[in-house]
Amino acid sequence: MKGIGTRLLLFVTCFSLCLALAAPVRAIGDAPLTMTRADKSLLQSNVASLWKLHVRIGSARPADLKQHETFGLVKNGQLSPAFVAQAVLQLSLRDEDTPHSQGPEWQAAPRPADVPRRYDLCIPLRQLEMVARQWLGWSLEVAALSRIDGVLRKGDCLYVDTQRLLNTWPCPMYDPREHDIFAQPFKTHAEQDRWIMQGEVWDIQQGQGGLDVNVCGTFSLTVKKVDGHWRILSLDFGRSLVLQ
């Protein structure tokens, strides 16, 4: 009986091992096994846009943070809601598809009588939430918007005094007509439940002899896939963040 029990145990062990080998490999640690080309392209675009805003994100404030840079603190598994709200508004102002004062959003929802004329932009809250998830991977806490100078919430829409809002940001935004900024990754790999992308930020301009490519700085991005979106856990830039 002892021999039968041993052979049975051996059979079960071998069978379990075969099943494990036959099953598809799902992850490296807990991270997704692959990052698609579309995923990489999205993250490259996000890095370039956040570089233009001089944004850095992480769990500890950098000692070399400059006056023109803005830092988003990730604490207790949450990116600062105030930072998310401010960054989302800035990113929305950069988006060419954002409905401006003469756009369809104004026609669909006429300006309320108690909204001053200086509020020249109307952004639906649903759009701000979409920007937060697609560009930062974090959800937007609507309550945090009320603490931003230059915005006024009415129902499901946020009215923005764009000039006042831009003046609250530590630095001016770059004119996309003058600078084409690209993030070029050199290394992308998985570690446990997250992915790390490292590379350089390039400024490409039209010169007399063709395209001029200048390296603006290096970057290191750490992200995690949450609810179908890439959540930024850290984003750091090396060298100068100022275009020469």
Rank of each mutant, 00 (worst) to 15 (best):
C216Q: 09
E105L: 00
P81E: 07
K75N: 04
R7N: 12
Q184T: 00
I204T: 11
S92R: 02
F182Y: 09
R61N: 01
E105Q: 08
L9Q: 10
I196D: 09
H100P: 03
R239G: 07
A132D: 01
A109Q: 08
A108M: 12
L158M: 09
E141W: 09
A190G: 11
G209R: 13
R239F: 13
L136S: 05
Q86A: 06
D149A: 07
L17Y: 06
I28Q: 04
F186Y: 15
V115E: 01
T70F: 10
P104T: 06
V131R: 05
N46H: 01
D203S: 05
S234Y: 03
L136E: 01
R118I: 00
G207M: 12
L50I: 01
S45Y: 03
R94P: 03
V213T: 15
A31I: 04
Y119Q: 02
M197F: 04
G29I: 06
N76P: 02
I204K: 15
F15V: 05
G207C: 08
T162A: 11
Q107V: 10
D175E: 12
S92D: 00
R111W: 06
E141H: 06
G150Q: 08
K2S: 04
C14K: 10
E200P: 04
K52I: 01
L211A: 13
W169E: 05
S220N: 13
N46L: 06
I196Y: 12
E129I: 05
E178R: 14
V242W: 10
R133Y: 12
V88M: 03
W202I: 11
V223E: 01
A144K: 03
C122T: 03
N214M: 01
R164A: 12
W230Y: 02
Q44V: 01
G29V: 04
Y119S: 07
R164T: 14
L140F: 06
G209T: 12
Q163G: 12
D64G: 05
E96D: 11
M130N: 07
D64Y: 04
S49K: 11
Q184I: 02
G207H: 12
